[in-house]
Amino acid sequence: MVDSEERSSEAAEVRMGVMRLARRLRAEREPGELTLGRSSALGRLERDGPTTASALAAAERVTPQTMARIVQHLLDAGLAERTPDPVDRRATLIRITEAGSSRVLADRSRREAWLAQAMDELTDVERELLVLAARLLDRLADAPS
Rank of each mutant, 00 (worst) to 15 (best):
A99E: 12
A113D: 15
T97Q: 11
V125K: 11
L105H: 12
R110W: 06
V125S: 11
S109R: 15
L115C: 07
A116Y: 13
V104T: 04
I96Y: 09
E121F: 00
D124C: 04
A106T: 12
A118W: 07
W114A: 01
D124A: 08
E112Y: 09
V104S: 04
R110V: 07
S102E: 11
R111F: 02
R127N: 04
S101W: 06
E98R: 08
M119P: 02
M119K: 09
A116D: 14
V125C: 03
L105F: 12
V104P: 01
S101D: 03
Q117E: 15
R103K: 07
D107C: 05
S102N: 09
I96F: 05
R127E: 07
R95A: 15
Q117R: 15
E112C: 08
L115F: 06
A116V: 07
S101R: 15
S101G: 14
S101C: 10
A99H: 09
R111M: 08
A113G: 12
M119Q: 13
E126A: 12
A113L: 14
D124L: 07
L122Y: 01
A113Q: 14
R95S: 12
A106F: 02
E126P: 01
L122D: 00
L122S: 00
T97W: 11
D107Q: 03
S109P: 08
R95E: 14
R95W: 05
S101A: 10
R95G: 09
R103I: 02
R127H: 06
L122F: 01
L105E: 14
D124Y: 05
R103F: 03
S101T: 10
D124R: 08
R110F: 03
S109H: 12
A118Y: 02
I96P: 13
R110A: 15
A99F: 07
I96C: 10
Q117V: 13
S101H: 09
E126M: 06
D124H: 08
E126R: 07
R103W: 05
A99I: 05
R108A: 13
E126V: 02
A106V: 09
E98V: 10
R111G: 04
R111P: 01
R103G: 00
L115D: 02
R127G: 05
R110D: 05
E112V: 13
A99L: 11
W114E: 01
Q117D: 15
E98H: 04
M119T: 12
S109A: 15
R110K: 15
T97R: 11
A118E: 10
R103D: 03
E121D: 03
A118K: 13
E98Q: 06
T97D: 07
W114D: 01
E126L: 04
A106C: 05
A106N: 09
Q117L: 15
D120H: 00
D124Q: 07
W114C: 00
D124W: 02
L105S: 11
E98N: 05
S102R: 13
S101E: 07
T97F: 14
L122K: 00
L115H: 03
G100N: 04
A118D: 06
A106Q: 12
M119L: 13
R95C: 08
A106R: 14
G100D: 10
L122T: 00
G100W: 09
E126F: 02
T97A: 13
R127T: 09
L115W: 06
T97Y: 08
